[in-house]
């Protein structure tokens, strides 16, 4: 199916609104050469939408694939450009982002210069032309504010699912993350130094040591589609202490064995975007779109972003049809978000 640039423009404009890009801002687009070949209209749309605002877009093409080992080193001209711009966006096909959140240059750009870092979510390209990229960021913020009002009153949520998940997640409400943070909710856009993946659609918890119970995962990163047999994670003190459930469980055990903090739950997210497609999203190895689908609960292993011993490619998995309860309120009800109905009405 042929697409036209007009179909990418709404997604591109939403992107710049979320990141609060203004006239005179320098926007650095960092595509892989594969992305330039596969998704040229996205680059055209991002360039055109930046110019509509009066921002100054620049493109730096990455020709060498990102390595899987830390430290992640980029050429000096790119490193300097990351520090000098106001916002940079990594664009890849799969893996999605040529500049990771663990990259020293990216962290220095954010922490010392207040540069915003964006990633385009994993997929097979043409993401900006999809319905989930067109879903307005203002509605994501509205949902986030409503959810935060419930989450602020508690320090734990209870996650259950029909196939046996029974997990208590211990969290600090002021440390919610993902597309939404407390400062971003306050200001109504991504604040300086913030990193987020686009298209939008997750609210994340940095789970703490009180997290415990059982998570029964319907899907796992690296596996296309839903698992034939769910994988069970036993969680104690925010670490996965046992993994059970067939071949996929064995694969995960092997992947994390011997890696420091690879058993640590770094992040638990709830998908917020009703236009993100679940089944199409599960067709890519990283499940980028599926994670953002309304009501999907994702659990990601690995140390905190910026952690010195972080496994660079952590394991994650999703629970479909989850129910999430906080203080007696169901903020996710069998995979649906009541708050979405509220803001729509």
């Amino acid at each position: 199916m042929s697409l036209y640039i007009a179909e990418f423009m709404e997604g591109a404009r939403n992107f710049y609104r979320y990141f609060n890009v203004k006239r005179g801002d320098h926007v650095l687009l960092v595509p892989t050469s594969e992305f330039v070949y596969s998704d040229p209209l996205a680059l055209e749309a991002l360039t055109a939408a930046a110019r509509e605002i009066g921002a100054e877009p620049l493109i730096f093409i990455i020709t060498k694939p990102r390595g899987r080992q830390l430290p992640e080193v980029h050429p000096e001209p790119l490193t300097r450009a990351l520090m000098a711009c106001d916002l940079f966006l990594g664009l890849g096909i799969d893996p999605p982002n040529p500049i990771s959140g663990h990259c020293v240059a990216a962290l220095t750009a954010r922490w010392d210069h207040g540069v915003k870092q964006a990633d385009l979510a994993a997929g097979r390209g043409k993401v900006l032309a999809t319905e989930w990229a067109r879903f307005p960021p203002e509605k994501i913020f509205a949902m986030g504010r409503r959810l935060f009002r419930s989450l602020e009153k508690a320090r734990a949520v209870h996650v259950t699912s029909p196939n046996g998940t029974d997990l208590i997640v211990d969290y600090d409400p002021y440390l919610i993350t993902g597309s939404l943070t407390v400062p971003a909710l306050e200001y109504g856009y991504a604040t300086a130094g913030m990193r987020a993946t686009y298209p939008l659609g997750v609210l994340g918890f940095l789970s703490d040591v009180g997290t415990q119970g059982k998570a029964v995962l319907d899907c796992l990163s690296g596996h296309v589609g839903k698992l034939d047999h769910p994988v069970n994670w036993t969680v104690k003190e925010n670490r996965v202490t046992d993994i059970a459930g067939g071949e996929e469980a064995a694969r995960v055990r092997a992947e994390i064995e011997g890696l420091e903090n690879a058993d640590y739950i770094a992040l638990i997210t709830i998908g917020l975007n009703p236009k993100a497609r679940l089944w199409e999203g599960l067709m890519s190895g990283r499940h980028g779109e599926a994670q953002r689908h309304e009501g999907v609960v994702r659990i990601a292993l690995g140390d905190r972003p910026g952690g010195n011993n972080s496994p660079m490619h952590g394991v994650s998995g999703e629970i479909l049809d989850a129910t999430v309860e906080v203080n007696g309120e169901l903020i996710v009800d069998r995979g649906r978000l009541p708050v979405l109905r509220e803001i729509t009405e």
Partner: peptide, 29 residues
Amino acid sequence: VTLGETLLEGTVDIHGNIQKEYIIAWLSR
């Protein structure tokens, strides 16, 4: 040394460093 470098080295710890990066960048400046 910059604040970013100290955070990377782990010689400075800031509560909520993922959420308050705009303040970190300001303090660094």
